[in-house]
């Protein structure tokens, strides 16, 4: 177990090293920071001075080593735009994103398991076919389009009047087809401060209502993936000899489905799913932009527009770190759940 952790830690360092080289290379080649920092009236001589002062004329290796040394202390320099340490800017935006990802994960777990299991147990039922059809649609539509449609329907409202409005039944039918809107779809609304830079949406009903549309649209791409994954795994497990043997033992179908089959189904789902949850952090860029959700995704997009390179690099490093951490956690959980896997430092 300890050996496993040490080995994973080593892996994590290796991955972070590669990410840091790539992000630094981006930093070195992405636009001219001097141009962003000073006004047009500043003469070339002053620009050259600033360039020298910031160490931008040093060789790549020297610059990288300086960067890496500071990065070890989570010091990624100052944001050109905010004028404060980038890490503080990122930490200020991170809770919003993590809360959004958390809400989405809860949605995914709540719906993917029952729907996936149901459509595996009854693959031919009309409901299963409907789930499968809708999930294909969900996977195919890009997140931002889903988000915009959701905003139109639930935030702005749709007035649809194909039936005569002056009759009772007509306005009733029109009412069925129309929505009032009113769901919040801009920003986080009122949040409750918890600790440090963390303010939460989960403390009040109103705060939660701000989470609804963003988390649904973020889930729209992952939920179908999970449903299909669980269904496919479950279908395979149901064909296995040990499920047949359990049937031959006279065990109730309920126990066969939810103990014998589901436990085996969840093993690969944990591995794939864990990694996908990590990916969600990156997916938030689109969702946050559409909903103006003040998280790191929106911050990253703004930083790109402003060529705020230190902030871009910090974002890449932090998201990379989140990836590495979730992956390690997933491996750890997998080892604990699957009895046939022993967590050792030895190569498999």
């Amino acid at each position: 177990m300890i050996a496993f952790l040490i080995k994973r830690l080593f892996h994590a360092f290796l991955v972070m090293f590669i990410i840091s080289v790539i992000s630094f290379a981006i930093q070195d080649n992405l636009g001219d920071p001097i141009q962003q920092m000073v006004g047009q009236s500043v003469p070339d001589s002053e620009r050259a001075e600033l360039r020298e002062e910031l160490g931008l004329n040093d060789p790549f290796m020297v610059q990288y080593l300086r960067f890496a040394k500071n990065a070890m202390h989570f010091d990624f320099g100052y944001s050109y735009f905010y004028g404060e340490p980038t890490i503080e800017v990122v930490l200020r935006h991170l809770p919003a994103t993590l809360e959004l990802v958390f809400a989405t994960t809860v949605l995914i777990m709540l719906f993917s398991v029952p729907i996936g299991v149901y459509s595996a147990i009854k693959p031919r039922s009309p409901l299963s076919r409907l789930f499968m059809g809708v999930s294909i649609v969900g996977i195919s539509i890009p997140v931002f389009l889903t988000a915009i449609v959701l905003i139109q329907i639930f935030a702005i409202g749709v007035q649809f009047t194909p039936f005569p409005v002056d009759t009772g039944w007509g306005s009733w039918l029109n009412g069925l087809l129309s929505t009032d809107g009113g769901m919040p779809a801009y920003g986080r609304g009122d949040v409750v401060h918890v600790v440090g830079t963390w303010s939460t949406n989960f403390a009040s009903l109103e705060g939660l209502s701000y989470l609804v549309l963003p988390s649904i649209s973020l889930a729209s791409i992952m939920l179908p993936l999970f449903i299909r994954l669980i269904r496919a795994e479950m279908l395979e497990v149901l064909q296995s000899d040990y499920v047949k043997f359990a049937k031959a033992k006279g065990i109730s179908m309920r126990r066969i489905y939810f103990v014998h089959a589901l436990k085996n189904t969840m093993l690969p789902v944990i591995t794939v799913g864990g990694v996908q949850i990590g990916t969600l952090v990156a997916y938030t860029i689109l969702t946050e932009t559409v909903f103006q959700w003040p998280g790191v995704g929106l911050m990253f997009l703004d930083a790109i527009e402003r060529s705020d390179i230190p902030l871009i690099v910090t974002y890449l490093m932090i998201v990379g770190l989140i990836f590495v951490i979730t992956n390690t956690l997933v491996d750890l959980i997998y080892g604990l759940v699957n009895p046939t896997v022993k967590l050792t430092g030895k190569p498999a």
Binding site: F245, A248, T340
Partner: peptide, 17 residues
């Protein structure tokens, strides 16, 4: 009536004791 299957490696559920 109980059954014994062909392949003992596949007959027992791997995640249950």
């Amino acid at each position: 009536v109980s059954m014994i299957f062909q392949d003992p490696m596949m007959t027992l559920n791997p995640v249950l004791t």
